[in-house]
Design a protein around this nucleic acid. Structure first.
Lengths: 223, 223
DNA sequence: GTACGGGACAAACCTAGGTATAGCTTCTCC
DNA sequence: GGAGAAGCTATACCTAGGTTTGTCCCGTAC
């Protein structure tokens, strides 16, 4: 998992974050680019939403800095499109003539910040910092969950049945009864599940099933 | 846990939600009160932040509707005070003369919505509905977690040690080795833990320890 | 048609988990 | 100074979990 590059010279693109800028005002793009590069961030700037969408999604922590008012597709539209496309890169909005409903909509949709022009350098740098940090966490979590999910998908349907009952706390014999199987069969599936899921203990398996959203009926806790 | 009143006639205050209004404009208070009552919500209205704070915190799902501009303590200040006092009732702001930074601050601090005057009835009703729903969920989660936490606090320090190692997936003998104990001792503690925590299975116990934030070193998942 | 994977089971065997009973020390509270 | 709780262990015993080897049925893909 945590294999870093083994070579001695430090590699400078392993998880070097990128800031994407979308603003139709070239001078603004230049100013922001200079600002971000001055603190050592990689930058890619675009003049419109479609240009951004054509760029390949990056494989490093990143964030978007969007002008609300863009030609064609507005910043808010772009936010919605990205969400629909299941792209959850954190977004910072910049606006010259924003209003409150716009702000509320953007923030409710998960924007990190919403800054008004003229933007103070420190404000946007702070926002970008926070956005990248959030993206890093999101990516970490995502990687973990998708590993678990792909293992889960390698299970046969019977194995999935057993997994859900076992992680809900039933004993092998109870699982067997519910599925109409012999206890030994459950034991064998259980072993296969542990192997396929890469779980080293039942505790592991329970946590994985939590991550996958496989829940029993209700959250226990009775006297 | 889930002891409801046992009497036959349906009790109408068991979890009847309440909307708290804080606005210095009496006519606004009246209008909002009428609006909310017209859809069957209980309402308590106040003219200033201190008045609200003197009222007893309710034991039902609720939400706050705050004017941003209040005499003395502003709506945003009140939001911060409540957060500091660990009161997390969802807040809906209403403003006549708000600006974007204010909106951003409120939303970042967790406000449900931020509406501008004149407020459309449907907008505020939707917001209140969403706020109460969120509060219901928050309260449910809270109740569960605090039950688990109080049980955890009834454990002796050794039992806690064992709990954290067991739920991290170690076998009894490994736990024993790490704590310098005999395996039998671990077994006995383990039994006491299950009893005190009210866990019916190891899976239960693992989920409880997750809820308590007792994590092992790292999130496993290796090949 | 046979090779393959999923599904199901049995016998044999071993390890891990869990309880009951009993006994020991140490510390604290009244 | 004795009662009680926490902490620790031993013997004995039983149940649950888990692997291996081998067998059988079924469907389907080549």
């Amino acid at each position: 998992m945590t294999e870093r590059a083994q070579s001695s010279p430090p590699e400078e693109d392993g998880d070097q974050p990128i800031v994407f800028i979308v603003d139709d005002d070239a001078s603004m793009r230049r100013a922001l680019t200079n600002l971000f590069e001055s603190v050592g961030l990689k930058v890619e700037a675009f003049g419109s939403a479609p240009q951004l969408l054509q760029a390949k999604p990056p494989d490093v922590p990143s964030c978007l800095v969007l002008d609300i008012r863009l030609p064609g597709v507005s910043g808010l539209d772009l936010q919605a499109d990205l969400a629909k496309a299941n792209i959850h890169t954190p977004i910072i909005f910049i606006t010259g003539h924003g209003d409150i409903p716009m702000t509320v909509r953007a923030m409710k949709s998960g924007a990190i910040d919403f800054l008004t022009k003229p933007v103070r350098d420190q404000d946007i740098l702070d926002a970008v910092q926070a956005a990248i940090e959030r993206d890093r966490k999101r990516r970490d979590l995502n990687r973990t969950v998708s590993t678990v999910r792909s293992r889960f998908e390698s299970l046969s349907s019977r194995e999935r049945d057993v997994l859900s009952l076992v992680t809900s706390g039933l004993m092998n014999k109870q699982v067997a009864a519910q599925l109409g199987l012999a206890e030994i069969t459950v034991k064998i599936y259980r072993g296969q599940i542990m192997r396929k899921m890469g779980a080293k203990s039942l505790a592991d398996l329970v946590r994985m099933s939590e991550a996958l959203g496989i829940r029993p009926n209700k959250s226990d806790i009775q006297t």
